[in-house]
């Protein structure tokens, strides 16, 4: 079991954002978390990646307890993450964005005197090639289109050579065409690299075309879990997605 979330509860003051959530992701699996707004998907991501420390419960990665560890430590263990809102380094060039991540992964960031410009070029360009941004290498990343920025973020995430990718709404705000492209990109890269994928998504077509396992969160708790077909036919899931009347 690559990632194991055990009975995790997170409460902000009196508000319980995730309630006793358990979740397993196996190596190589493409797992998806769905749920209506406010179901606690992003909170769960933040708990797994160390941005939040759970009130109760444990999180294991490679059977190693990572509960409450710092994000950069968890990242170094082999977890990659993209954020719901695009998260790049806007004033840096596309090349520098990925380069910084590669430098960090190769633990070269405490080199104070070597000029960085020509360092780790090959690795950086290989990554840019993977996400299809070689031609934009010199552009300031903040000026790129939204779709490119998402691709860039994927490149940054891949630079730390993760085993598992956590993607928070990878297609949020994209046009149908961009969505198709970006899903193809993600699927291709995770196949090539043998990555495990855990993602949240609101677009049901995407979910059912990619996911091997779906977990439905509702009001902070797991409502249903299983193969896409089972989840689709689950009466509880249909009820929260189609409204209480159905």
């Amino acid at each position: 079991m690559l990632l194991r979330v055990e009975n995790v509860t997170m409460s902000f003051g009196g508000f319980i954002a995730t309630n006793n959530v358990s979740l397993n992701v196996e190596k190589g699996q493409m797992a998806c978390i769905i749920g209506p707004n406010g179901a606690g998907k992003s909170t769960l991501f933040n708990l797994i990646t160390g941005h939040l420390t759970p009130t109760m419960g444990k999180i294991f990665f490679h059977d190693q307890d990572i509960t409450g560890k710092a994000p950069h430590t968890i990242c170094q263990l082999g977890m990659g993450r993209s954020f719901q809102r695009t998260n790049i380094f806007p004033r840096l060039t596309v090349f520098e964005n990925v380069q910084v991540a590669v430098l960090s992964h190769t633990r070269k960031t405490l080199n104070f005197l070597t000029p960085a410009k020509t360092m780790v070029q090959e690795a950086t360009f290989a990554l840019l090639e993977d996400v299809g941004l070689v031609d934009q290498a010199k552009s300031t990343s903040g000026t790129l289109s939204y779709g490119y920025q998402k691709q860039l973020e994927l490149g940054i995430t891949l630079a730390s050579d993760p085993e598992i990718l956590l993607l928070d709404e990878p297609t949020a705000g994209m046009s149908p065409q961009e969505t198709t492209n970006s899903i193809e990109l993600i699927a291709r890269i995770s196949r090539e690299r043998g990555l495990t994928l855990l993602f949240t998504e609101h677009d049901m077509d995407v979910v059912f075309s990619v996911a091997e396992k779906i977990t439905v969160l509702h009001q902070g708790a797991v409502l249903a879990e299983g193969a896409p077909e089972d989840v689709k036919n689950d009466p509880d899931v249909q009820r929260i997605y189609l409204g209480e009347a159905a």
Partner: peptide, 27 residues
């Protein structure tokens, strides 16, 4: 030399986006 070294680049990345820098493994 320092601002153009990997350390300098890293520092700029931290300035640009602390949360993201943290999750590319930068302390």
């Amino acid at each position: 030399r320092i601002v153009n070294s990997p350390f300098g680049k890293t520092l700029t990345a931290i300035r640009e986006n602390e949360v993201r820098a943290d999750f590319v493994g930068i302390n």
